[in-house]
Design a protein around this nucleic acid. Structure first.
Length: 730
DNA sequence: GTTTACGCATCCCCG
DNA sequence: ATGCGTAAAC
């Protein structure tokens, strides 16, 4: 087969990597060095060399990334590239386990739990721990999940994780072990796997059954792994199990961009690649095509203080360009003003919104900006939220479907039962226990020990499941039946916005088009959840908008103009950071953020932020503080700025508090809290007026916020410490 | 003993 | 807005 002229399309180091014909290969690719390009061309090159595309396995971080790469491949070598097996480790595991899970005693129709499910199961199991552990300080459910999952994905014991990562929960180490044990058992009894199980169980099969391993590994003559720095030890093991026979393994990554340790990723993986695969070649890509030199200078300065690794030396190919701007603003409102204004300016100059992105550490950091953008009527799309699948009506709805596929899924059963009036957690538990994970029992649910008011649910449920868990039931019919059954619950549970929620559920009908089985539809929904529909303001054509994204969500992407919000201690790095390794991860995160920018980079720093304790002075992000000041253009360095002019109606209220401008230089700054009496002090029963909601009565209040029962809007929580003028006593 | 209602705190990144 | 813990209602 004749392929494209690779030599002409690539620089010499990329070309070497693309056409490397030996054994294991590690491509250490600095930010913007054409990593994806190289990987895409390598796949294309393999195909052009006559390798059967179906024998190429391309493992990526997200499903979308795989799809995009294969599309690009197809443009190089034709539709053949579509036969390449591409996807995430989890998707691969799902695929293989559907066939091989019975080796581990799982039915092929096992369910998949998302993080929320896992956390809920753990929280429920916590209740059943022996009595002597009651009263001790336990992690909350998110913490439970984090501990158990980190243990699984790092191949460590729960005790070890507690000792090293959660030392403050050392007293309940034994209980955590016990809990993890119960969790394993319940998952098995329910025939469900969590995200870690998918990987672990695949690794287990590949490890314990040599014949199966050889057969599976034999299917793939070439294995390529993208974003290798964000693999966890189990994933590295899988790569090894699949690739060690042929030795034809290519890993691509950049240890400086490893930002997923909270998920068990370990950048040691990439450092250890040459050990895992002896005689691996290590090739580096060090030319940066993306950013102008001044942006890269900041990026390199951020990395300077990092522990040594592969010693890359990133060189900017592009010359010229402006220094990144480091902008001090009074507070987050002023920050949003500044960013919003600058974006409006850019768009006014004719810059396409798709060339602009705003990045931040945490989703909530963009709230003020979202306000501002809506006010300015600038459409944006926010990435990084995955709320949709977490909404309770979505979980309710999916529980029906899961149960239809997998009658052993007692968690889903309990969730459904508890929807009904008169059935609470105890009632649900006793019914679930009666079913005992037996399909026959499940199919005659009406005979289960329902009590009191709950009895009326029994027959209806049995009828429903009689329809939807029949073999060969049409997906569309199943969805419609569940929809019909669930609709009355929507009305009862969410009287305020049942319409909207109904519409969201309706989306499932179209989403399910093209799926052959309910099982594969559910697996896809869990492994590749649709993003939050509500976060897309003005809901217009998909990729037309300005991008708002978490830094994590911006991984691998680039824009001409990049804004980074709130680069201050407590927000970024987040206040969670306590250990050195966590701080180092924040450094890499900053590096990722900075290297997303091609032409212009703006970093903003609100000098004050409000926390639950009140207004606090901020310090610059510690890693930015290490960067020589002369590498930045320092706009708005507030030296002797006069007091803000008189009381402006809106933002002025927050602003005028800070009369006597702050010096931006580091050091101790006086906390400039507003005089006490300026904050409205409210108590229960006070009559108030709100600019938007009109008259109401205070139900309860704490510092700077109040729950108010409005005459015509009902109950609302008003946080007025940011905007005191909104609410007044009458 | 269970369920439900209500007040209260919390709200980071993701397959 | 959502979820958790506690108090009132069933």
């Amino acid at each position: 087969m004749k392929g494209p002229d690779f030599q002409a399309l690539l620089n010499p180091s990329q070309y070497r990597a693309v056409t490397y014909a030996g054994g294991p290969l590690l491509i250490v690719a600095g930010a913007g060095s054409g990593k994806t390009r190289t990987l895409v061309h390598r796949v294309a090159w393999l195909v052009s060399q006559g390798v059967n595309p179906a024998e190429i396995l391309l493992l990526t971080f997200t499903r979308k990334a795989a799809q995009e790469m294969l599309d690009r491949c197809a443009r190089l070598v034709g539709p053949e590239a579509g036969k390449v097996a591409g996807g995430t480790f989890h998707a691969l595991a799902n695929l293989l386990l559907r066939r091989h899970a019975p080796l581990l005693g799982y039915p092929a129709s096992f369910g998949i739990m998302d993080q929320d499910d896992s956390a809920n199961m753990l929280a429920k199991l916590k209740e059943s721990l022996p009595a002597d552990s009651k009263g001790k300080k336990f992690p909350k459910k998110a913490g439970l999940y984090s501990i158990v999952s980190q243990a699984a994905s790092r191949e460590k014991s729960v005790s070890e994780i507690v000792e090293t990562k959660f030392p403050h929960f050392r007293e309940v180490k034994r209980e955590m072990e016990e809990l993890a044990d119960l969790y394993e058992r319940q998952k098995r009894a329910s025939a469900v796997m969590d995200f870690d199980d998918l990987l672990r169980n695949l690794a287990k099969i590949l490890g314990q059954d040599e014949e199966t391993r050889e057969r599976i590994a034999g299917r793939y003559s070439h294995v390529l792994v993208d974003e290798y720095q964000d693999t966890n030890p189990v994933q590295a093991r899988i790569a090894w199990q699949l690739g060690r026979d042929s030795g034809r393994v290519t890993a691509v990554g950049d240890e400086a961009q490893s930002i997923y340790s909270f998920r068990g990723a370990d950048y040691q993986n990439i450092l250890n690649f040459p050990t895992l695969f002896p005689n691996a070649a290590v090739l580096k890509l060090e030319e940066n095509y993306r950013s102008v030199q001044p942006v890269l200078a900041v990026a390199n300065a951020v990395l300077r203080g990092a522990p040594a690794s592969f010693e890359k030396n990133l060189r900017a190919v592009r010359e010229g360009g402006a220094k990144p701007v480091l902008k001090d603003t009074e507070d987050v409102t002023a920050e949003a003003e500044f960013v919003g204004e600058r974006i409006a300016e850019l768009l006014g100059e004719g810059v396409s919104p798709t060339r602009v992105a705003v990045l931040f550490r945490a989703s909530s950091h963009s709230f003020e900006l979202e306000f501002k953008l809506i006010k300015e009527r600038i459409p944006f799309t926010k990435y990084g939220g995955r709320k949709f699948m977490e909404r309770s009506h979505v979980k309710d709805f999916l529980s029906f479907l899961r149960l239809a596929v997998n009658p052993r899924d007692s968690l889903s059963l309990a969730r459904i039962l508890e929807l009904h009036e008169g059935i609470g957690s105890k009632g649900a538990e006793s019914v679930a226990a009666w079913v005992g994970g037996e399909r026959e029992n499940f199919m005659r649910l009406a005979e289960a020990p329902f009590k009191g008011k709950g009895k009326s649910a029994a027959q209806d449920l049995q009828d429903l499941f009689g329809i939807i868990s029949r073999d060969g039931a049409e997906i569309g019919n199943c969805l419609a039946s569940v929809f019909e059954y669930y609709e009355p619950f929507l009305e009862r549970l969410y009287p305020d916005d049942s319409r909207e929620r109904r519409n969201e559920l309706q989306e499932f009908l179209s989403m399910s088009q093209g799926y052959g089985s309910l099982e594969s539809f559910l697996a896809d929904l869990t492994l590749d959840p649709p993003s939050d529909q509500k976060s897309q303001s003005f809901r217009r054509g998909a990729r037309q908008d300005l991008t708002l994204s978490t830094i994590h969500g911006a991984k691998g992407l680039e824009w001409d103009y990049v804004f980074l919000l709130s680069a201050v201690e407590g927000r970024f790095p987040s206040s969670y950071v306590s250990q050195d390794d966590e701080a180092e991860e924040e450094r890499r995160l900053l590096y990722v953020a900075v290297t997303r920018a091609k032409d212009e980079l703006y970093i903003t720093r609100p000098l004050m932020v409000s926390t639950f304790e009140g207004w606090m002075d901020t310090r610059l992000n510690r890693h930015l503080a290490e960067v020589p000041r002369e590498l930045f253009d320092r706009l708005g360095k507030r030296r002797g700025v006069p007091a803000a002019p008189g009381p402006k109606p809106s933002a002025g209220a927050a602003r005028s508090r800070r009369e006597g401008a702050m010096e931006a230089a580091p050091g101790k700054l006086s906390v400039d809290l507003p005089p006490r009496e300026k904050i409205l002090e409210l108590r229960k029963g006070d009559k108030v007026t709100h600019v938007t909601f009109g008259n109401g009565v205070v139900v309860s209040s704490r510092d700077g916020a109040a729950l108010v029962n409005f005459d015509s809007f009902g109950r609302k929580n008003i946080v007025f410490k940011h905007s005191p003028h909104c609410l007044s006593r009458r």
